[in-house]
């Protein structure tokens, strides 16, 4: 299968990391897709940017650390990670030290980004 034949998938992440199991579910989908060498990108939108807060310590909850798991994305060759700049600014998140490198995009650019993909999966 050539790269051109592959569908491009955008995973839109809109919820905080530990308030529900959605963050874990989105990571499962992303890593499974990566294992099958699918063409996948992530967009952290709205409250989803809360997953990018550095130095999360989830062990007190007995839950997997979403931040540290996100840090492994480059090892799965997932390098397209976009972030809603307005939401990151609203929560004063320092993206220069977030678990994974991101590309900031403005609210006005988000719609265009979404239309560049064949499928959108929302979490």
């Amino acid at each position: 299968m050539t790269t051109r034949d592959k569908k491009r998938m955008l995973v839109v992440i809109r919820h905080s990391p530990y308030g529900s199991s959605l963050a874990k579910a989105s990571l499962d989908v992303v890593l499974a897709a990566a294992a099958f060498e699918q063409n996948i990108a992530l967009l952290f939108l709205g409250d989803g940017v809360l997953q990018l807060i550095p130095r999360q310590e989830s062990s007190a909850l007995g839950k997997k650390n979403i931040g540290r798991q996100l840090a492994s994305l480059p090892l799965y060759d997932i390098d397209s990670v976009y972030v809603d700049a307005e939401a990151a600014a609203r929560y004063n998140i320092d993206l220069t030290i977030s678990p994974v490198d991101t590309q900031s995009i403005s609210t006005g650019e988000i719609h265009q980004l979404m239309t560049e993909f064949d499928h959108i999966l929302g979490f």
């Binding site: 294992a35 997997k64 090892l75």
Partner: peptide, 8 residues
């Protein structure tokens, strides 16, 4: 990374 790696 708080996870076990897949092969890739």
């Amino acid at each position: 990374f708080d996870s076990s790696p897949a092969m890739r």
